[in-house]
Simulated assay, not measured.
Amino acid sequence: MPYFTLIMKKSRFIVLLVALGCNIPHEDSRLVFTEKQLPTPIQLKGEKLDFGLEFALNPKEILLKDQNLIVAEGKSLQNEKVHLLDLRGQKYRRSVGKDGLGPGEITIGYPLLDSGEPDIFWVYDTQQFKFSAFSIKDTSSLAIRQFKGLDIPLYITSVDWGPNNTLLVNLVDGWVKYFQLNTDGDTIRYFGSWENMLDGRELPQGVKREDLQPNLLASLHQGKIKSNPSKTRFVKAGTHVDFIDIIDIENEEVITVYGPIDELPEFRVSMNQGFQMPAFDLSKLTLKYLDIYAGDKSFFALYSGKSFREISEDSNLNRLFEFDYDGKVLNHYQLDFPLIGFTVDEINRKIYGISTDMDPGIVLFDLN
């Protein structure tokens, strides 16, 4: 599949130049931190919150919006894919997300996105390549508006809302790391190169840098993207590689932070429908950053360090690292619940996590 077909028709000329390797801006700096350089961990004690739910919760993602927790379900449901929980009264409000392909319907309830609009949250349906807006105040389970915004599907791997009704995305193929797009399908800017992620890295035995294709590197470095409230800074954190990109979108600058291990996982090159993909050694593979929160002056990253099979165990529990936007580690928090996601109330200094223990639910951590 030619790379330019992954972008909307209006941008083919720009992307074709990128595919040919023309003038891709490079990352600005590379920082590394180790376990020994981390601050002394601050122990946080979590409290399971009871919202009076009459059903078992299996949370996948969480978003804080106007003192409501928006919680996406991890299990497959016909309807009610996203739950709204009121923090003020600590009660269940309702669920949204009618299953289907029709107007206002979705087939999957995550990732959750915040465009900054009051009382509105978004779901990017990765099965339909569709963005759906839901109102906290509306009583319907349907989305109040939706768009694809593209002439053909855009193979997005990570996305969040940016400034002025734009999106910052990673794509499944091509050397370019980041594209800023508007909802009409125009490319505003592009910057960063996946190839630079191999600088100074030791590849697994038998893997040669010159043989690797961009889609393999993009897949190897997959992870979530989150924007700060003002949409001026973004953070991307790797799921299988312990890296964090700190992104200044206006200046097209990226600081990449590696740690606390700073090494690539073991993998071999496999082929899937004509594309290179990393085949991991599952006996050695561990999860790195499970989730991130980009705040006003700092951001938080949820670190695992365990295999997928061990993710729910109560030993070697998750940690939270807090960084400033220059890449400096500010705080190191040790949690007492296994989490797969979290969000932060910066004003009240509270963390709300979604647990992956035997009784999954919402866990409150107080930073005061």
Rank of each mutant, 00 (worst) to 15 (best):
P153K: 07
Y124G: 04
V123K: 04
Q67I: 01
Q127K: 14
L112R: 05
P118W: 10
K148E: 12
L87E: 05
Y110N: 12
L57G: 02
F131E: 00
F134A: 01
I156N: 03
W122G: 00
K48D: 05
K75C: 08
D125Q: 07
D160I: 06
F147I: 06
D114I: 10
L87W: 03
Y124F: 15
G104H: 06
K130F: 05
V96W: 04
F131T: 01
T157G: 10
V71K: 03
K137E: 11
Q67R: 14
L101Q: 12
L57I: 08
D86P: 00
V82F: 06
P103Q: 12
F129V: 05
I152F: 13
G149H: 05
P59Y: 02
D86E: 13
P59H: 03
Y92R: 07
D151A: 11
G149E: 07
Y124D: 02
L77C: 09
L142M: 11
Q128N: 09
T126M: 14
F129I: 03
L57N: 03
I108S: 11
L142C: 02
S76V: 15
F131G: 00
Y92H: 12
G149S: 09
Y92S: 05
D119S: 13
T126K: 15
K48E: 11
P111V: 08
R88S: 12
R88M: 11
G104L: 09
E61P: 01
K148N: 12
I156E: 01
G109Q: 05
R93V: 15
D50F: 07
G102M: 07
E47C: 08
K130N: 08
P103F: 10
N79S: 14
A133Y: 03
K75I: 13
G109Y: 04
